[in-house]
Design a protein around this nucleic acid. Structure first.
Lengths: 251, 251
DNA sequence: CGAATTTTTGATTTATCTCAACAACCGTGG
DNA sequence: CCACGGTTGTTGAGATAAATCAAAAATTCG
């Protein structure tokens, strides 16, 4: 059977060397994503337990750190940067199933193998937990399990929205939905600009389109005065309401 | 704002009258889907607690019992029949996000409103739990929460596969994947026939295609000798391996 | 049986993809 | 600072898979 990993695709090393030392309690206590992550399920008094199970890991852009089909040895919590999650077909076609930003938990797979791959979009900082230590934490802190269920439920809702997008929306509706999602998930800079960390290729693989169609659609939106496409990956939303009705197919 | 519910679409009554009496402990003890459902998290000795929280509900074919956007007052466990879960756009385009059979749990939504609609495909039997009683059960039986997380993780894996299908597979690959999924999820009758409970329209809305494309693709598969399309909704898989390689795009 | 619904099949259109060329941008090193 | 090669993005022309429009055939159900 040929190796079909998308990581190879990127022509990067397959395995990632990561540190093994646990963290100090203060590291978690100070963590700026804890409030919005599963880690919030553990109180300050017990935070040492969490910290000693975690290993901080930095992943450089383009590096693949979860490979579809490999044994699911670790769970991850994103503390900064953006991760793309994807599935691929043997011939290389690829679907990005989601982008995970700070606070997102990765590795929710029942089976003992990852059902998807994960790759750093920009520089990504992660807290890594081994399967065994995670299991112990969940046994000792049931609140964490509840928090994880919330996280999973949120992801399911997002997945259902994405299925509607992929199955039934036009290219324009897809791009409009994407821009609004990105704008809602927060990262607007000083002057209303949305900084997209991912390439056109990533956007295309996320929306089930080709690079060319994404590019053409953004150009069309610019021509319509809905957005302004700046240098690099900066986009300004000029007509949010028009984009919103477009995203819901009301045009 | 116009009412855009998919239930109205089906021209069926909007609200469903359901019984309110709890069940006897034996009902749950005897239940044939308990082993494969979240209810397996509760032991025989405590099964009375589960039974008294449940209300048995029967839904006739085509009836909508969860409406997207309505307050999420209840959770459901399917005991027999098939349910379609869907999301819709204002203009009526519809995406079926999944089919739920016996043992499936419905209602995993974080928000206090349903993020999707649910409609009976054939005659469906459900156990209904109110949000409040479910909350109490989860507080008293943490194993149930863990079981629910497993369920959610399984659904996430299925959702990721469906995103790959909708975003990147051709019509033939989609139909092949669908037939194999249906065959794996069990219901083969006495002579290897797969009985699909859903219409061509449902299949189309699930696969992000039109009715005509689904029909044409099934005809093509029949002409290729891959399947036999019997009366009603019966299909026999004649060349499973060809379908499998087709489903993964290896053709 | 006969009306209504669903499915199949055919002809044509179209949104998006593919192929191709060019332009903009990025980092590197002279 | 600018020249350079490589990568990424844009735009154009043409091809195509699937959608749409239309009608016939099969099935369901009263």
């Amino acid at each position: 059977m040929p190796d079909t990993s998308s990581c190879q695709f990127e022509q990067r090393p397959r395995r990632l060397v990561m540190g093994t030392a646990g963290l100090q309690a203060d590291f978690c206590k100070m963590c700026n994503v804890r409030p919005s992550s599963v880690c919030s399920a553990i109180e300050n008094e017990d935070i040492g337990r969490l910290a000693e199970a975690a290993v901080e890991t930095i992943v450089t852009p383009g590096r693949c750190f979860i490979e579809e089909g490999e044994p699911a040895t670790d769970f991850f919590n994103v503390t900064s940067g953006t991760v793309k999650l994807f599935k691929a077909l043997p011939d290389g076609r690829r679907q990005i199933t989601g982008f995970a930003g700070p606070g997102h938990f990765l590795g929710l797979a029942v089976s003992d193998r990852y059902a998807f791959g994960a790759e750093a979009v920009d520089t990504v900082r992660l807290c890594r937990f081994s399967r065994e230590r995670m299991r112990v934490l969940l046994d000792d802190f049931p609140r964490m399990e509840r928090r994880l269920l919330e996280e999973a439920s949120n992801e399911l809702v997002a997945a259902q929205n994405q299925m509607l997008l992929l199955g039934r929306k036009t290219a324009r509706e897809r791009v409009a939905s994407f821009l609004l999602d990105q704008a809602n998930h927060g990262e607007l800079n000083s002057e209303g600009q949305l900084h997209l960390p991912m390439t056109r290729g990533d956007i295309a693989d996320y929306l089930g389109l080709t690079i060319e169609t994404v590019s053409r659609t953004l150009s069309w939106m610019r021509a319509q005065g809905m957005i302004d496409v700046g240098k690099g990956y900066a986009i300004t939303i000029l007509a949010q309401e028009r984009l919103e009705s477009l995203a819901e197919g009301e045009d």
